[in-house]
């Protein structure tokens, strides 16, 4: 089945982001076709050079770095969310595909399950 995780929370707002990534990895273990869409403040999870330990957390970008090991390589970001935060792709820690609103609609419509954080 096709699973999409729609991540919209910032990386260090409590443990929401970290727990969502745990769920993604388990979906990967279940051999589902898993993709992830980072949107709104969720795009901040992808930033390079995070130092989560300073906030008493695991670094979220390091947790996300495990996704390819679970064969989760379909990673998408919302173009508008990047633009609103003045971010460019070279500031992100993983290779991602940028989608506009129409692209996101198409992606979501193609899923069997959408999980959100």
């Amino acid at each position: 089945m096709r699973f999409l995780y729609l991540l919209r929370r910032p990386p260090y707002s409590g443990s929401l982001a970290a727990e969502a990534i745990d769920s993604i990895l388990v979906a990967g273990v279940f051999d589902q076709r898993v993709s992830v869409l980072f949107k709104d403040d969720g795009v901040l999870q992808l930033l390079k050079d995070q130092q989560g330990q300073l906030l008493g957390h695991r670094s979220v970008n390091k947790m996300l770095a495990a996704l390819p090991e679970y064969e989760i390589e379909e990673l998408f970001v919302c173009a508008r969310s990047l633009a609103e935060r003045a971010l460019s792709l070279d500031q992100l820690s993983l290779p991602v595909q940028v989608l506009d609103e129409v692209g996101q609609q198409t992606l979501i419509a193609a899923q069997n399950v959408v999980m959100n954080d």
Partner: peptide, 18 residues
Amino acid sequence: LGQQIEAAISCDRTITFP
């Protein structure tokens, strides 16, 4: 967490209350 994924696979609809 496997129970969350197994349920999503087994069901017609998965609904999340954030």
